[in-house]
């Protein structure tokens, strides 16, 4: 690992420590969000409300010196409310473009599954291409750009399940759970007296994301490790436990995330451990359980863990 990569790794750890200092007891979630950011992907976060998702994105945005916007998805939200629209300005007697909240660096799409498919689809282009087409013109969104969408696993009434094509656009799906008892005591005592709002001294930029992404792409991946990642993804296809396995996009995502994890760990190369560690977040939203497995009460994570046990790890 060269000096610049080492500097990036140090900066990443500083950012990680900073976020963990504000979002207490969710270090794993913070790591996975940072990994997704370094890999240039988007994150789908599933968890009940009130676990600090907004705080996470706010703190992250401040830490990378970027802009943050939030959209609360509702059944009557229109695509134009997300991307923006062209309107006639009476004073200037001409059409003017009004940019939507998507023109930002970090976008928190809260409860994304409450909006109908049409509005969800408005995110597809921007998530893949990092650009929005408005009035026939393509416009680039901010750099870096990342969507953090949230879903509530409990209230399913009146929701629209995300289509497979959109799910595949999220590089990882992070399950956020309640913090441990000790952490919860710390949260309760600290935030009973203090507001959640980002403090002025929080706005210091700790990481240059674009440079970090370039370093991430330069992390070395041995052929055996690539083969291992592909084998893991392919193991989801021939099994009767899953109705639908993960596609090639999962292999790409797995290697990109493994690279990011290696960078966070301060290592200049990817190991099978990095790949294995990222299997659940990368694949849990890309596979569909077989109905009989679902009826038997098994979850996606259990099935994926089971499959992991059947793939030989490389050694040379």
């Amino acid at each position: 690992m060269n000096d610049t990569s080492h500097t990036t790794s140090t900066a990443l750890n500083a950012l990680r420590t900073h976020i963990n200092g504000r979002l207490i007891g969710q270090s794993q979630v913070v790591d996975q969000v940072l990994i997704a950011m370094l890999a240039g992907g988007h994150v789908l976060i599933e968890g009940v409300p009130g676990l600090g998702k907004t705080l996470l994105v706010q703190t992250l945005a401040a830490g990378i010196g970027g802009q943050f916007k939030r959209i609360q998805f509702t059944p009557d939200l229109m695509p134009g409310d997300v991307t923006g629209h062209v309107m006639f300005d009476m004073s200037q007697s001409k059409f003017v473009l009004k940019q939507g909240p998507i023109f930002t660096n970090l976008l928190l799409a809260d409860e994304i599954n409450r909006a109908p498919a049409k509005t969800q689809a408005a995110l597809l282009e921007v998530m893949q291409e990092h650009q929005v087409t408005l009035d026939g013109k393509s416009m680039e969104v901010g750099k870096p750009f990342m969507v953090l969408a949230t879903q509530n696993p409990i209230e399913q009434e009146g929701t629209y399940a995300l289509p497979e094509a959109e799910l595949d656009r999220f590089i990882v799906k992070v399950n956020i759970d309640y913090p441990e008892a000790d952490d919860e005591v710390l949260i309760a005592t600290r935030y009973a007296l203090q507001s959640f709002a980002v403090e002025p001294n929080d706005s210091q930029q700790l990481l240059d994301v674009e440079a970090a992404q370039q370093h991430c792409a330069a992390i070395e991946v041995d052929d055996k490790v690539s083969e291992y990642a592909v084998k893991l993804v392919r193991s989801t296809r021939g099994t009767t436990l899953l109705r639908h396995g993960a596609g090639p996009r999962a292999s790409i995502a797995l290697l990109r995330c493994a690279r990011a994890l290696a960078l966070i760990n301060g290592v200049g190369f990817v190991t099978p451990d990095d790949v294995k560690a990222m299997v659940l977040p990368v694949m849990r939203h890309r596979v569909i359980l077989a109905p009989e497995v679902e009826i038997d009460g098994l979850g996606v994570d259990e099935v994926l863990r089971n499959l992991l046990e059947k793939v030989d790890a490389p050694r040379s």
């Binding site: 190991t271 451990d273 046990e309 059947k310 030989d312 790890a313 050694r315 040379s316």
Partner: peptide, 28 residues
């Protein structure tokens, strides 16, 4: 290095009865 690693695994299995599986990575 491969020989040294293999020899170590072999001794660990034979002497300490460690249940390594083919799916285990190095850190596991």
């Amino acid at each position: 290095l491969s020989l040294l690693y293999r020899a170590s695994l072999s001794r660990l299995i034979a002497r300490y009865e460690l249940a390594f599986r083919a799916s285990h990575t190095e850190l596991e």
